[in-house]
Amino acid sequence: ENVVSAPMPGKVLRVLVRVGDRVRVGQGLLVLEAMKMENEIPSPRDGVVKRILVKEGEIVDTGQPLIELG
């Protein structure tokens, strides 16, 4: 699984990683606000951040690609 998608609609509050960062399974990639709750979106696997597909403040839909892992 190379693309991390939004599990719910919401607003991207914070991106916690940068392109080139090594991440571990379960590590927070970004914080999504949904229904006034902050939800940290975890990495599904170990890898390297290849691309960040959203910006802070952006509104996303369920299933929208957020981050690509390499």
Rank of each mutant, 00 (worst) to 15 (best):
E1Y: 01
V3Y: 10
V4H: 15
V4P: 09
V4D: 01
V4Q: 10
V4C: 00
V4S: 08
S5A: 04
S5I: 12
S5Q: 11
S5R: 02
A6C: 00
A6N: 04
P7N: 03
P7Q: 13
P7Y: 04
P7L: 10
P7D: 05
M8Q: 12
M8H: 08
M8S: 03
P9Y: 03
G10D: 07
G10T: 12
K11V: 04
K11N: 06
V12R: 00
V12H: 02
V12N: 11
L13C: 00
L13V: 14
L13D: 04
L13F: 09
R14D: 07
R14M: 08
L16G: 06
L16E: 11
L16Q: 06
L16Y: 15
V17K: 08
V17M: 12
G20A: 07
G20T: 10
D21Y: 01
D21F: 01
D21V: 02
D21H: 02
R22N: 06
R22Q: 15
R22Y: 14
V23Y: 10
R24D: 02
R24W: 09
R24E: 12
R24Q: 14
V25E: 11
V25Y: 07
V25W: 09
V25N: 10
G26N: 15
Q27A: 07
Q27Y: 06
G28E: 09
L29K: 00
L30P: 00
L30V: 04
V31E: 07
V31H: 12
L32E: 14
L32K: 05
L32V: 09
L32P: 00
L32S: 07
L32A: 11
E33F: 10
E33Y: 12
A34L: 03
M35W: 10
M35N: 07
K36D: 02
K36F: 15
K36T: 14
K36V: 14
M37S: 03
M37F: 15
N39T: 09
E40C: 00
E40V: 05
E40H: 11
E40Y: 13
E40F: 03
E40M: 04
I41V: 08
I41G: 01
I41E: 11
I41W: 05
I41Q: 13
P42G: 07
P42A: 05
P42T: 12
P42I: 15
P42K: 15
P42R: 14
P42M: 04
S43T: 15
S43C: 00
P44R: 08
P44T: 10
P44I: 06
R45M: 05
R45E: 09
D46G: 03
D46S: 04
D46P: 09
D46I: 04
G47K: 04
V48M: 05
V48T: 15
V48K: 07
V48F: 11
V48N: 07
V49T: 03
V49I: 11
V49L: 09
V49K: 00
V49Q: 01
V49S: 02
V49D: 00
K50Y: 06
K50R: 06
K50W: 05
R51I: 15
R51L: 08
R51T: 13
I52H: 09
I52D: 10
I52G: 11
I52F: 08
L53K: 11
L53M: 15
L53V: 14
V54K: 06
E56F: 12
E56K: 13
E56Y: 13
E56Q: 03
G57R: 10
E58W: 03
I59Q: 04
I59T: 05
I59Y: 15
I59R: 10
I59V: 13
I59G: 08
D61K: 10
T62E: 07
T62G: 05
T62C: 00
T62H: 04
T62L: 07
G63Y: 13
G63S: 05
G63V: 07
Q64C: 00
Q64T: 13
Q64W: 10
P65M: 15
P65E: 10
P65Y: 12
P65H: 14
L66D: 00
L66V: 12
L66T: 05
L66P: 00
I67H: 05
I67G: 15
I67M: 11
E68M: 02
E68R: 01
L69P: 02
G70L: 02
G70M: 11
G70T: 07
